[in-house]
Design a protein around this nucleic acid. Structure first.
Lengths: 353, 353
DNA sequence: ACGGTCATGGTAAGCGCTTTCCACGAGGTA
DNA sequence: TACCTCGTGGAAAGCGCTTACCATGACCGT
């Protein structure tokens, strides 16, 4: 006797409407009811009975019990999505793409925000494992902390063993991934700055332990090196991946090297902070005195003043692809998503000395 | 025989590790194992056995099966959140708040984006019903379409009958709600404009059928009337709740009534479009020629140029409260969330004629 | 007419848990 | 000593589905 049945206000015992009741109402076996209501794999049900079951279900207001189905089939239709922070436009875009795809696949997506706590991330993949999610989408880059990464990997391995699929958005070494060319994007941005005559470029980076920032940073550094320039450590400062972080970092950067003519912010929300620092706090002109370029091309980039030149990452499409990947709706060998530089008004020729 | 057991690559049949196996490994009954691993309601288990079970679980790498638990207890720990669009900062903020609270409650949140399709919304509450979600959070306002609203209400009633709780963010007439004072906020914005000397004010509104816009509009209208002013229909234009919508609406509005000295945008993302239209397309100064005020105070409002004066809605807190409400962590009679006007640079005295 | 195929309906054995009983021994009380 | 009450452990009956397997009858070819 696991559960007491619920009762209406009038006191008549009703219980929830179950397949059982639908079957009785329609005068068929519950096997038949199941087959018509939930598409009983390759079995057909006669016209007459099918109709009876369908109307019984409608009359009774039957709603299937997903947990019970999950238990019986040992498969669910939920996919988990783990992000750092839903309110960050970067992740919001990915989530939006994932939802769009999920809708097509009739999947439900369960989302978890780690608030950048790796510990919590591990805890969430465990929860999603318990939920028997059909797949797991990891957005948001990992860190370079070995022990954390290993524990995460173990949990993911377990998830896979239970038959779950996992996809990472942005490389992370864990399973099939939707690659995002962070390095290439950064290289493109640096190259553009170089082309404009900038020789003393600084970068405002996010948390140093994030793989994403390492990749972006490396991309910029390498491009500059190839061009004959350089990006000494003194010209990069790490801070939170937030507006405030960007602002503080920019202030510090410009204090350290007042001669910088351009700064590359490793994401758009930091870039907003940089713009504020340079223009409002320092009273310098953008792009007259210093050019700034962002990264991601989030929706509000165009509304910054000056409108932000930035590296566009097809985030929404990445989210979409990730779910396609785990439900193999799409061939695994699609061309990688391209990054591109969108030039707006925050960049200009380096000022003459 | 419902399910084939899974098999390792080596061919040894392993099966998933179930409570059953943990119990065997620990040499106890599965009842006992259940009690120690899942806190068997008010029953205590001896020190010794408890330890044995715990280490057995750890050694075997046991992960509980949420669907099975849900079936047995007929209760889950997932709460559904239905929004229009996760990428919209308004909803993203609500979602972030909800996630924060969910984490404290050890709940998982399942999110669904309707992309503003009421049909889809109904479909999603049905899915969430099937999932046996413990509660449902409806963010995003409803429409005034009677038939749609009724169908939604029916579905929600069913959800409640099954024991689910539902909370709306922003009034919607469906169950306990986290009220958001849309009208009051709009009134405050209008009043400020009036105080600055503006007498010919226009409003750029979202879709006319949304309750939210109706409330905001009504608030502004009433405040103006009270002040001795007016807001004729010719001065409000409806458009999509997007940047593009805001821009087009602003263009149309100013074409219709070139003498407007201020425009109130019914949300910040539309306000961004308005700013673009007024300054870039029309070449007029803000706030010199026309003042603009937004609504919501999304994070990027401060980065718009000029920085946007807007009505602040405590969205994140609203999301948090909504989940507290459905899990009754908090008393139901907390003071309502306050709205406030944050004055920045996009508003100024009405220009002298 | 007979064995063989199909198409279609039902039976019942699970899926992995939770929880109600029941059993049993230890201590307390009268 | 007889009778209770606790504190603990286990047996087993579900929870609401899915699906292998069996039964039945119709239809076919020979």
């Amino acid at each position: 006797m696991a559960n007491p049945r619920s009762t209406t206000r009038a006191g008549r015992s009703t219980g929830a409407v179950t397949l059982q009741r639908v079957a009785e109402h329609a005068g068929v076996s519950i096997a038949t009811a199941s087959r018509v209501l939930h598409g009983g794999g390759s079995r057909t049900v006669g016209e007459e009975l099918r109709r009876r079951v369908e109307s019984a279900a409608r009359e009774l207001g039957y709603v299937s019990n997903a947990p019970a189905q999950a238990l019986a089939r040992s498969a669910t239709s939920v996919v988990g999505l783990i992000v750092h922070d839903v309110a960050d436009p970067y992740f919001a875009a990915i989530a939006a793409g994932a939802m769009r795809a999920a809708r097509r696949q009739r999947l439900m997506i369960m989302i978890a925000a780690t608030f950048r706590d790796p510990e919590l991330e591990i805890e969430y993949v465990r929860s999603l494992r318990a939920q028997r999610a059909r797949a797991l989408l990891l957005a948001g880059s990992g860190t370079d902390d070995r022990s954390l990464t290993d524990r995460l990997a173990a949990e993911l391995a377990g998830f896979r063993e239970d038959g779950g699929r996992v996809a990472c958005i942005g490389e992370r070494g864990a399973g099939p991934a939707v690659p995002l060319d962070h390095a290439g994007g950064a290289a493109r941005a640096a190259t553009e700055l170089w082309r404009l005559g900038h020789r003393r470029i600084g970068v405002v980076a996010g948390p140093a332990e994030l793989l994403t920032v390492q990749q972006r940073l490396a991309g910029a550094r390498q491009a500059l090196a190839q061009l004959g320039g350089e990006l000494p450590d003194s010209r990069v400062v790490f801070a939170d991946f937030t507006r405030a972080g960007g602002r503080e970092a920019a202030l510090e950067l410009l204090a350290r090297e007042p001669g910088l003519t351009a700064v590359l912010a490793l994401n758009d929300v930091m870039a907003a902070g940089v713009l504020a620092a340079v223009q409002d706090d320092l009273g310098r002109a953008v792009p007259g005195d210093v050019s700034v370029v962002g990264f991601d091309d989030v929706p509000f980039a165009v509304d910054l003043r000056p409108a932000l030149t930035t590296v566009r990452l097809p985030l929404e499409e990445a989210g979409e692809r990730a779910v396609q990947l785990v439900v193999e709706e799409a061939p695994a060998d699609r061309p990688p998503l391209g990054v591109s530089l969108v030039v707006r008004d925050s960049t200009g020729p380096a000022p003459q000395r």
